[in-house]
Every structure is written in C-alpha cells, then in structure tokens.
C-alpha cells in the first residue's frame, strides 16, 4: 500500500508540475475570439461586412473569377478604381456614367459600354464584350448584390468606397431594371434557340457556329459527338460529365430552374442538330 500511495503521489506531482508549468511558466495568451460571420441582414451591416459579401459574390455566385483571373480571359480588376477614371474620358467609351461608381455598375449590367482593347468578342473588333449582363441570364445578381460587388471592387482596387448599403432590400423598385421585371412576372417561353443562347450568354464560354468563347467546349459540331440525353444532362447538371481538357465547376448550375421545359427541349434539339 505504501508503494502504491507513493507511486500515486509521484504521478500526481508529475502531472501537477506539467500543469503548473503550462499555467505559470509560460505566458497565457488569450487567442482572438472567432471572427464574426457576416450577417445577411443589410440593415445592421458595416461597410466592411458589406464588402466581404461583395467579395464572396465576386468569386461565388457572380462567377466573375472564372474570367477575371490571371489566365488572361478578361482584364484583371485590381486597379479598376484608377483605370475607371481614365475610361470615362476614353473616346471609345459609349456609356453614360459620370463617376467610378456608375461606371462599375454600368460595366456589370451593360458590359459593352466599354471594351478593353483585346478583350472583345471575337470578330467584333472590340466593339462587343463577351461578358454577360450579371443581372440576367444564369448569374442573376439583384441590385443589392451588384452594389456589394461594386463596393468590393472599389475597396480591393484602392479606390474610395462610394456606394451606400441599400437599406430597403425587401421591396423591389418599381418599373426598374430588367432583372426585377424578369422576376416579377413570368416571361413568355422562347422558341428561338439563338435568342435563348443570347439570353443565357452561352456563347460567352462556348464556341457555337464559329462564334463565342473558349472557356467551355466548342459546341459547333456537338450533335455529331453527343446524344440528346447527354446534352440535356450537361445543361441541367454541368458537372455530371466534364469534357476532356476542361475544368469542373466552371459552368453555372441552376439552368434547370431558369429554363422552361419547352425551352430546354428547343436548346437540346438545336444542339443535337449541330453536325
């Protein structure tokens, strides 16, 4: 029993020494508490949180980083604050903006107002931008989201952040922009495949009949390669099959919610007919 007790005491002393050293022998640094998660409640948001929302949209839902990255598909935006000032004075500028904020919003919804030399749609001599209108198509950012992206762009490029955090998010502005109209009332089903492609800006990434981008596979002869089931699946679930040489997660998901069934079939038939 004596041995037993002395072993116990010895062990407790050892543990006590370790605990004591950890408590009193070294500085007790209290780590910073976990960072606050950004709230989606815009009313009580600080500008920093709002900018963080914009950053998230920029790389997430907005799919901006697909092209605005260092692979040269679209201009980098790290100095856009400075550059925008010069753009407004550029003779090639066709828009109506008068300051940076307006210019950025315009660039997001009417990308062709100014096309950076060398980044225009192929064959248009930089008159038309391959970038889709982010308020429509499959990206569909709402007004507040666009404002957040602009705030982020201003912040990250070193420009002064001039946007205001929208307060009345719940109500939609009346008679306003396209996006609101599109959501407010159901649109007519479109039966012209070319119009559908234009509306969803498929050609921003895909080459169709010799026109379009190179981010996604060339669809000019896709009907000869793939059957209708495959095409349908690729529209509804873009990551189900990835063509060789292309990255997953590039094409936006959620086409299924935005296309009418009849439109889906129009697109599939059109694509299947490309031989």
């Amino acid at each position: 029993m004596r041995q037993f007790l002395s072993v116990i005491v010895f062990s407790l002393l050892t543990i006590g020494f370790f605990a004591g050293y950890s408590n009193f022998g070294i500085p007790q640094i209290e780590p910073a508490p976990p960072p606050k998660e950004e709230k989606l409640d815009l009313g009580s948001m600080t500008m920093d949180q709002f900018i963080a929302v914009g950053e998230k949209l920029f790389s997430g839902k907005g799919t901006c980083t697909l092209c605005h990255n260092n692979l040269g598909r679209a201009p980098l935006l790290d100095t856009i604050g400075e550059v925008a000032q010069q753009r407004l004075k550029d003779p090639r500028y066709k828009g109506e903006a008068t300051n940076i904020e307006e210019y950025l919003i315009e660039s997001l919804v009417k990308p062709s107002a100014f096309v950076v030399a060398g980044f225009g749609k192929k064959g248009t001599n930089d008159a038309e931008s391959p970038m889709p209108d982010v308020s429509g198509g499959s990206i569909r950012l709402d007004e507040a989201e666009i404002t957040a992206v602009v705030a982020y762009l201003q912040d990250s490029s070193g420009a002064e952040v001039t946007v205001e955090i929208p307060k009345d998010l719940g109500k939609k502005k009346e008679g306003g922009e396209e996006a609101d109209v599109a959501e407010a009332e159901p649109r007519e089903a479109i039966s012209d495949p070319e119009k559908l492609i234009a509306m969803f800006t498929c050609d921003a990434c895909h080459m169709i009949n010799g026109v379009g981008g190179e981010i996604g596979p060339d669809l000019s002869k896709i009907g000869a390669l793939r059957n209708r089931d495959y095409l349908r699946r690729s529209i509804l679930d873009p990551n189900a099959d990835i063509a060789e040489g292309f990255e997953p997660d590039q094409m936006p998901e959620g086409m299924g919610e935005q296309l009418y069934v009849s439109e889906l079939e129009v697109l599939v038939s059109f694509l299947a007919g490309l031989k």
Partner: peptide, 19 residues
C-alpha cells in the same frame, strides 16, 4: 509583460485602403 513578438499575422489586412 509577456508579449508575443512575432504574432501570427492576420491572413488579410487592410493596407492603403485595399484588402
């Protein structure tokens, strides 16, 4: 005064108005 001389920097910081 027990103080960490080289604290781990934050991953991002706002410097010159930029993150």
């Amino acid at each position: 005064e027990l103080r960490t001389i080289h604290p781990a920097p934050p991953t991002t910081a706002k410097i010159f108005g930029k993150r």
